[in-house]
Computed example of a mutant assay.
Amino acid sequence: MNTATAEMLEVKVDTARQLEERLNAAVRSLQDVAIRTRAQGILVTRLNPGHYTVSLSDSVPFGVTREQSR
């Protein structure tokens, strides 16, 4: 399951295979948005097992993807 806004995608998964596929798809989608502004990088945040957000972030330089856990 994925939910989305213009600058943030929520990714929920049940398996490792889903995790890789869905996170990669979310990052690619936000890369397209980031290229237009060239001002933000991408932040992947693990909220809980199987629950992530992928978002554009001012704290991440353009062209960089960072991961963090909460």
Rank of each mutant, 00 (worst) to 15 (best):
D58F: 10
N48P: 00
L43G: 04
R38V: 00
V54N: 10
G41F: 12
Y52M: 02
S57G: 05
P61L: 11
Y52F: 15
G63V: 11
L43C: 10
S55A: 14
S55Q: 14
T53P: 04
G63E: 12
E67P: 01
D58H: 12
F62W: 11
L56G: 07
P49V: 13
N48K: 15
V60W: 09
R46T: 02
V54W: 06
S55D: 04
T53W: 00
T45A: 10
T53L: 04
I42P: 09
T65F: 00
L47C: 05
Q40C: 02
T45E: 13
Y52G: 00
L43D: 08
F62P: 04
S59A: 12
S57V: 02
L47K: 12
N48E: 15
I42R: 01
R38F: 04
R38H: 07
R38I: 00
E67A: 11
Q40R: 15
E67W: 15
I42W: 07
G63N: 14
V44Y: 02
D58K: 14
S59I: 01
R46N: 06
V60Q: 09
R46W: 10
S57L: 05
A39M: 05
L56N: 05
L43Y: 05
S59M: 01
I42N: 05
L56I: 04
P49Y: 07
S55H: 05
N48D: 13
S59K: 11
R38A: 12
P61C: 07
S59D: 13
P61Y: 10
T65G: 03
L56A: 01
D58S: 13
V44G: 11
P49A: 12
E67G: 10
N48H: 14
G41R: 11
Q40E: 11
S55R: 15
L56T: 01
G50S: 12
T45L: 04
G41V: 02
I42L: 09
S55K: 15
T65M: 08
L43A: 09
N48V: 03
N48W: 14
A39D: 10
P61H: 10
Y52E: 05
V44W: 00
V60Y: 06
T65D: 00
F62Q: 05
G50F: 14
A39F: 06
V64K: 00
